[in-house]
Nucleic acid binder design. Structure first.
Length: 308
RNA sequence: GCCGAGGUAGCUCAGUCGGUAGAGCAGGGGACUGAAAAUCCCCGUGUCGGCAGUUCAAUUCUGUCCCUCGGCA
């Protein structure tokens, strides 16, 4: 079996990944695989900036809007689904384009996750409950006793990581730090080109503000209102940026201007975190939004080289 | 106009029984192995509303003025 050749396109929110992906797909016979933890959810197409129906009609797309808001998505599951989509597209003769803004998922897809079996929901719930009643100091001390290597790496206040480490040990009998020394046996060996879309935060912020206005105009508020008819406010799919802010507006806790201001501030902070992550991505080649021609040249050169 | 409550970090506020001040949020930087649009770590000098007075020393006490918000007119 030959190595699957694919392009990875990453960048902070609002840098024009969707448009660039379509341009690449049309120029090189590509098919798009989502690598975004929120765009997988159904029912929030506007709020999560999924490609529109007409955009998705321009080339094959996978993993967009196919998961109910009530369902948690774990990085491992996502990676497995993405690998399947990549293999399918490649088998059909398309050039797979992994496109998105979730750094962890990019890493997980290419093989960064240890083969840890799923932790039962009951164990996770129990561990979170213990955290809430015992507090960070006690829980971190407990982790230090049973898995000192993990404890040394995890900040005491980091509820998510401390409980995760304890959950894994409880569910599997093996410390998380041991698991992390094991490679992923399912890790694919892709031949990949990594492209980044970026611009300075100060230049990105006005675009993000404009995008929020556009989302509101396109019905983001109505979308959340409809989601609340079926789902609870606390459902995983509604936890993305914009969700809590618009819920605040819909329940009268915030006026629309305040909701939009918080939404923008959170989006901005998120973009900053994404940049921090992608900045150190190895072998990434950066482009400004809309710089499609320069990107095409790099892709063309890469395709020629790997074809030879 | 009168009576009350306030004017302290970009915002919301705490505090100093007189020795020039600190939280949350915002902002900046960073981390990141199954919640990742998540979670966490580091970074705080600002005429403490103006002016006078008392004092070795005032953001803190006193007087006065200005402004804001309530209530009464």
């Amino acid at each position: 079996m030959t190595r699957i050749r694919l392009i990875r396109l990453m960048g902070a929110t609002g840098t024009g990944k969707t448009g660039a992906a379509l341009a690449l797909a049309e120029a090189f016979g590509g098919a798009v695989v989502n690598v975004d933890s929120r765009q997988v959810y159904a029912g929030l197409a506007v709020l999560t900036a999924q490609p529109t129906a007409s955009e998705q009609a321009r080339c094959p797309h996978a993993l967009y809007g196919d998961t109910p808001l009530s369902e948690p998505v774990a990085a491992g599951d996502f990676a497995r689904r993405a690998r399947v989509a990549v293999a399918d597209f490649a088998a059909q003769g398309y050039l797979p384009l992994l496109v998105g803004g979730t750094g962890l998922y990019f890493r997980a897809i290419a093989g960064g996750l240890a083969p840890i079996p799923p932790v039962p929901a009951a164990v996770r719930q129990d561990m979170r409950r213990q955290w809430d009643s015992l507090g960070p100091a006690a829980m971190h001390a407990r982790l230090t006793a049973v898995d000192p290597d993990s404890a040394a790496k995890i900040a005491p206040n980091d509820r998510q990581r401390v409980t995760r480490a304890l959950e894994v040990l409880t569910a599997t009998g093996k410390p998380l730090s041991c698991w992390h020394r094991e490679p992923d046996p399912e890790a694919p060996d892709y031949d990949s080109l990594t492209l980044g879309l970026g611009l300075p935060l100060a230049d990105l912020v006005p675009r993000l503000a404009a995008r929020i206005e556009a989302m509101v105009a396109a019905g983001a508020v109505e979308e959340v209102r409809r989601a609340l008819e079926t789902y609870a406010e606390t459902v995983p799919g509604l936890s993305g940026i914009g969700g809590p802010e618009l819920i605040g507006f819909l329940t009268g806790r915030l006026d629309l201007e305040a909701a939009k201001a918080a939404w923008l501030a959170n989006t901005r902070a998120y973009a900053k975190r994404q940049m921090t992550w992608f900045r150190k991505e190895p072998d990434i080649q950066w482009f400004a939004p809309g710089e499609h021609q320069a990107m095409f040249e790099v892709v063309r050169a890469w395709l020629d080289r790997s074809a030879a």
